[in-house]
Design a protein around this nucleic acid. Structure first.
Lengths: 132, 132
DNA sequence: AAAACATTTAACCGAATGGTTGACCATTTT
DNA sequence: AAAATGGTCAACCATTCGGTTAAATGTTTT
């Protein structure tokens, strides 16, 4: 309903959003913003990077529509703006059936392996588990 | 369970995955692969681009783990490999509450507007709807 | 064996990316 | 008024990106 109305077919944003998300610094900044507003230098401190560098990252996030900036005196407060993330997730959701299909396959395989092991009591139990 | 086991904490992939998704050509290729395997030149044809160019895009998808290649004679068959998309979606899911929160806000606002309109029968009904 | 086909590789190009430093502009503090 | 603070802007740099063309590699067809 509301989601379809807002999101569908506006894929131009996706370029910018996915690009913004492709950098670990920016993802970390977004994560940081989940616990509330932060100033630019606040966001910058965790990273070994000049303030100007961090500022650039924030601008990338901003122009991807993932962050909103509110200027208060000399400090710029940044706020998470998650709507565009919803667009990204919606794009990804198209592919859900494909990975769930493969997970189903995987589960079937595991079940089969288990059955096979159960059916071969002669097989000596290994000290190491398979998945390691 | 299985998802957590496979996905959690391996964010290094995310750089590559999100970067791969940031290009519309590559997203279109992925979309194309949802209807089955395709050869490289097959994937390339829809785009105004040299084969070598398309080949590069496919390699980006491949090294992001989104496409698997199976060589059969002289043709390379590409197949969608969606598991890494699941990782991306899982990363995004952390932020779901934020956009749903905002959507709730929006809905609340809309409800309030409706109520406001309902409460002002003197307001002349407009010929154009708001959302246009 | 030669020709056609499917694809990659290599070399190149201009533009964008991620980073730096240094100068600049407001605002707040002293 | 001066100094300190919070931030941007501009210029620069090396690297990556998205694209090209031309040559090379391997397979299939003739």
């Amino acid at each position: 309903m509301i989601l379809n109305h807002m999101v569908e077919l506006q894929t131009p944003h996706l370029d910018a959003v996915f690009h913004a998300l492709s950098d670990p610094t920016r993802r970390a900044m977004l994560h940081r913003l989940t616990i509330g507003e932060h100033s630019v230098s606040d966001l910058a401190t965790p990273f070994r990077m000049s303030l100007a560098g961090a500022s650039k990252h924030i601008k990338v996030l901003e122009s991807a529509g993932l962050v909103r900036r509110r200027i208060e005196g000399r400090t710029h407060l940044c706020q998470l703006e998650a709507a565009r993330l919803a667009e990204a997730q919606q794009w990804l959701s198209t592919y859900e059936k494909f990975w769930s299909a493969r997970l189903d396959d995987l589960e079937a395989i595991l079940r089969e392996e288990d059955a096979s092991i159960a059916g071969k009591p002669a097989t000596p139990p290994l000290s190491n588990k398979v998945g390691e």
